[in-house]
Computed example of a mutant assay.
Amino acid sequence: MSEIHKAEPFEAALQFIHTSFPNCDGALLAGSVVRGEATETSDLDIVVFDQTVKSSYRESLIDFGWNIEVFVHNLISYKEFFINDCVRARPSLPRMVSEGVVLKDFERMESIKQEAKALLDKGPAEWTHEMIKIKRYFITDALDDFVGCTNRAEEIFIANTLAELVSEFVLRTNRKWIGTSKWLVRSLKLYDETFADHFIDVFDTFYKTGDKSKIINLVDKILQAHGGRLFSGFSLGK
């Protein structure tokens, strides 16, 4: 497709549905362009509902000057994705559907959006005491490695592991949704913006200066509310 013209996001999405899914039952435009967070590299996230599709699929393509990610579901298959996303606590599809702007409507579109919103509002399932113990152990293991490590290259990647483990721990013990990559930061900010800023600062300080103390203090403070570091007496599968 020629790059001389890049249509406005909503118009491009409408044209895409008209040409590629003219007989679909409904469609939504979601993602950063809907949230007002689009950058030069943002794509169009489009969710399509088509009762003639046998199984869900995802496809990436370029059209109307845009990179387009299209997520195609029939009127039953999306429910399985809703459930799976909630089980893993990363509500990708429910979030897209809930925030999405309708491109093509049918009588069930509003009810599907409400279904997605209800799942988001409910939050993920509460972690069991046993799960919290398991996560405490693995955070303790990574933290001990971090404290004792004297190899700068290894320290960087241990810090990355700690950031993922600890952010997940904080969010899940507070029954909040988690995320990866940019959604890790966004999930923390949705939970508590002040805490998120502090979390980012302690890791940023380490990456810039090599000072581990802020990360160690933060992790210990978070673990302390759940019994502190855990090593002695822990068992799994015994």
Rank of each mutant, 00 (worst) to 15 (best):
A7P: 00
A12V: 05
A13E: 08
A13K: 10
H18G: 01
T19P: 00
F21K: 08
F21M: 04
C24M: 07
C24G: 10
D25M: 04
D25G: 13
D25Y: 03
A27V: 04
A30D: 03
G31C: 03
V34M: 09
E40A: 12
T41S: 13
L44E: 06
V47H: 04
V48G: 04
D50F: 04
D50M: 04
K54N: 10
E59P: 00
S60V: 03
L61G: 05
G65A: 08
W66Y: 11
E69L: 01
V70G: 05
V70D: 07
V70M: 05
F71K: 14
V72S: 09
H73F: 15
F82Y: 08
V87E: 06
R88K: 13
S92F: 09
L93F: 09
K104Q: 07
D105F: 05
R108I: 00
I112G: 04
Q114K: 14
Q114S: 10
A116I: 04
K122L: 05
H129Q: 13
K135P: 00
K135N: 10
I139F: 06
D141F: 11
A142G: 01
L143G: 08
L143P: 06
L143F: 05
N151L: 08
R152L: 03
I156T: 14
I156D: 11
I158Y: 11
I158W: 10
I158T: 13
N160C: 07
N160V: 02
T161Y: 03
T161M: 11
L162Y: 09
A163L: 12
A163Q: 15
L165T: 02
L165H: 14
E168L: 03
G179E: 02
T180S: 11
K182G: 00
W183F: 12
S187A: 14
S187K: 11
L190K: 15
L190R: 15
E193N: 13
T194G: 13
D197T: 14
H198C: 00
I200Q: 15
D211C: 08
S213W: 08
K214T: 14
I215A: 12
I216Y: 13
I216Q: 12
N217H: 14
A225H: 13
H226Y: 15
H226D: 04
G227R: 11
R229F: 04
R229L: 05
F231C: 02
G233A: 11
K238W: 07
